[in-house]
Design a binder for these strands. Structure first.
Lengths: 186, 186
DNA sequence: CTCGAATGAGACTATTTTATCTCATTTGAG
DNA sequence: CTCAAATGAGATAAAATAGTCTCATTCGAG
């Protein structure tokens, strides 16, 4: 039982290192990933059969992390605006584990991820629709469009944090206010 | 003189084909690009010494296209809001030639592109600042942040058009209204 | 039409990355 | 401490891609 736990931890650390490196260098080779994780290439292959397997595990964990953040945000609770704010505040800190997704094209088409993608998107879509029904969010935009824009706004925020142009602690607030209020003066 | 023109046309067609294919398949090999452009690999190498050279030319043309769109938008003319609207309406149709930039990591670090990037960003930043000074745009956000969010919102819009969830003709209007007004009800 | 330049198809080589394998060393459970 | 399992380093093979070269064919200016 402990063996399994140890292995899982190791696997977890490896995925952390990989997503960290891939966020900076999306084209990193497996050898570079192994080096960055301070393990031998052979060991990497003992945990993942190949690059595809690693990327898939990485993406699955990213989606799981997002699902977790969504669950913790309790999107059904309170006003839709407050719920969206909680969601964004929960998602912004995940950048390290999710940002690499943007730069990988092979993942978008993977069938196993379509379900995970839908599972993460559905509750957010529901929240947006709830907010539209309650008059908190604009109803002249489709919920899908809003969620899609939100996704990219998140990537933009993560990148801004990553390149230092925005402080990590400010990112969530900036994102919420930009997303909800737009850049035009009201 | 005509020889040069012919060669330039051919080069132009080749770049068009490449950006078109790379938008769909960012990891396309040079052989695939050559096939897609319906030319031999050898000919591709006669126009571009290698992948780096091709990607650089592609990116430079993308920036030139953007600069052109900016110039045609006459950002200094009229209200900042109207100017921003003109800009977005000019940029949205360029997706085919620019979208691939998002999926390439090697370009971000290329020194020759830093200047082009700055050249395209400067007039847009100036427009945002003008709008902030005139009270049209929010002044509690930095112009850099606004432009950065706008960049990603554009990529999001291009992708939505590309995957069919938004009609090409609606994209610009949607983007302008989302960007300026946000998703919250005012 | 004619000729030189440009092209395409594909053989071929070089380079890079992935994946496998061996074996000495390390690790940690008991 | 002891031993079986896990690891790391590197050799090696395999695969994919990049890049070069040759030569017969096509193209287009004049």
């Amino acid at each position: 039982m402990q063996e399994t736990t140890l292995k899982d931890n190791r696997r977890h650390d490896l995925l952390n290192a990989a997503s960290e490196l891939l966020a900076q260098k999306p084209a990193a080779s497996l050898a570079e990933i192994a080096d960055y994780a301070k393990i031998g290439k052979a060991t990497l292959h003992r945990y993942f059969t190949g690059r595809d397997d690693l990327m898939l595990a990485l993406a699955q964990r990213a989606f799981a992390t997002i699902e977790d953040a969504i669950a913790k945000s309790e999107l059904e609770r309170g006003g839709a605006t407050e719920a969206l704010t909680r969601l964004i505040e929960a998602l912004v800190p995940l950048g390290d584990k999710v940002y690499f997704l943007l730069n990988d094209s092979t993942l978008a088409e993977h069938p196993d991820l379509a379900a995970a993608d839908h599972a993460t998107r559905a509750p957010v879509l529901a929240l947006i629709r709830r907010g539209q029904a309650s008059g908190e969010f604009r109803a002249d935009l489709t919920a899908e469009w809003i969620v899609h824009q939100m996704d990219y706004a998140l990537f933009a925020a993560w990148q801004a944090v990553y390149d230092g142009s925005v402080a990590r602690k400010d990112a969530a607030r900036l994102l919420v206010t930009t997303l909800l209020g737009g850049v035009g003066m009201r």
